[in-house]
């Protein structure tokens, strides 16, 4: 029962979604299942929070390496959650001044807003910005023209790196552009493509799109087959091992 019920729910929900897509009269069934999914997704936040508490508390109680970070994670989680849920420092909504909790949790000046503005924003931006440093270091150490494939990759990288900046336009400005020509000949179009900004578009449009389409079709076929296996109950790995 513990495995059969989830299996049935997944199977019925999956088939309803398929049927709803092809039969217009059953469209509302699909909408209902989608709403259930959204409700479950919201509940998953609570489960996720609970799981975070469980894992981090275990790490701290076992004094495993890095338990200090787990403590910081826990404190940050609890403080942020309390400030948001209890709307600490928030002023009541002007329409309902008698109700203390009628204001929004993220009003300017509240502790929640402060932590978002001065902790989350700079931390996330810093982590993202650090990529530039590591990419530069990796480019110097690992980007070697060792074989034909690597040379092609290098050439493409140069074109894209230059083509995505004003340098691309400046360096190949001497090549005539076909933009201002009303009916450009094939040769004029070909020559114009050699401009770095156009070459970038050409690479993205032709080679990148062709490669990505092939990958996407492959993924779609794989997804369809795996989905069918799940709906028919052949693949039950998503239910877990059943051992707690």
């Amino acid at each position: 029962m513990k495995r059969t019920a989830p299996l049935l729910i997944a199977s019925i929900a999956g088939f309803v979604m398929i049927v709803a897509y092809f039969i217009p009269k059953t469209q509302t069934w699909g909408e209902d299942v989608s709403v259930w999914f959204d409700i479950l997704a919201a509940i998953a936040f609570i489960l996720g929070g609970g799981n975070l508490l469980r894992v981090q508390l275990k790490k701290i109680s076992d004094r495993r390496p890095g338990w200090g970070y787990a403590l910081i994670t826990l404190i940050a989680f609890v403080v942020m959650l309390a400030c948001g849920l209890l709307k600490i420092g928030s002023h009541p909504n002007e329409q309902y001044p008698a109700f203390a909790w009628s204001g929004t949790y993220n009003q300017t000046g509240t502790p929640f807003w402060w932590m978002y503005e001065y902790l989350i924003v700079p931390l996330q931006s810093t982590i993202f910005a650090m990529l530039a440093f590591y990419v530069a270091s990796a480019a110097f150490r690992a980007f070697r023209a060792k074989n034909v494939e690597a040379i092609l990759l290098l050439g493409t990288a140069f074109v894209i790196l230059l083509g995505r900046t004003a340098a691309g336009v400046f360096l190949t400005d001497f090549i005539p552009s076909d933009v201002l020509i009303e009916n450009p000949t094939f040769l004029q179009h070909l020559v114009s493509t050699l401009r770095l900004e156009n070459l970038t578009v050409f690479l993205m449009d032709i080679f990148n799109t062709a490669g990505n389409r092939a990958i996407m079709i492959g993924i779609a076929l794989g997804t369809a087959s795996v989905s069918l296996k799940i709906l028919l109950g052949v693949d039950r790995s998503y239910l877990g091992s059943g051992e707690d």
């Binding site: 480019a139 110097f140 290098l154 990288a157 790196l161 230059l162």
Partner: peptide
């Protein structure tokens, strides 16, 4: 980045 890639090569 281009300079670093060329220098590395």
């Amino acid at each position: 980045m281009i300079f670093l890639i060329i220098a590395g090569n």
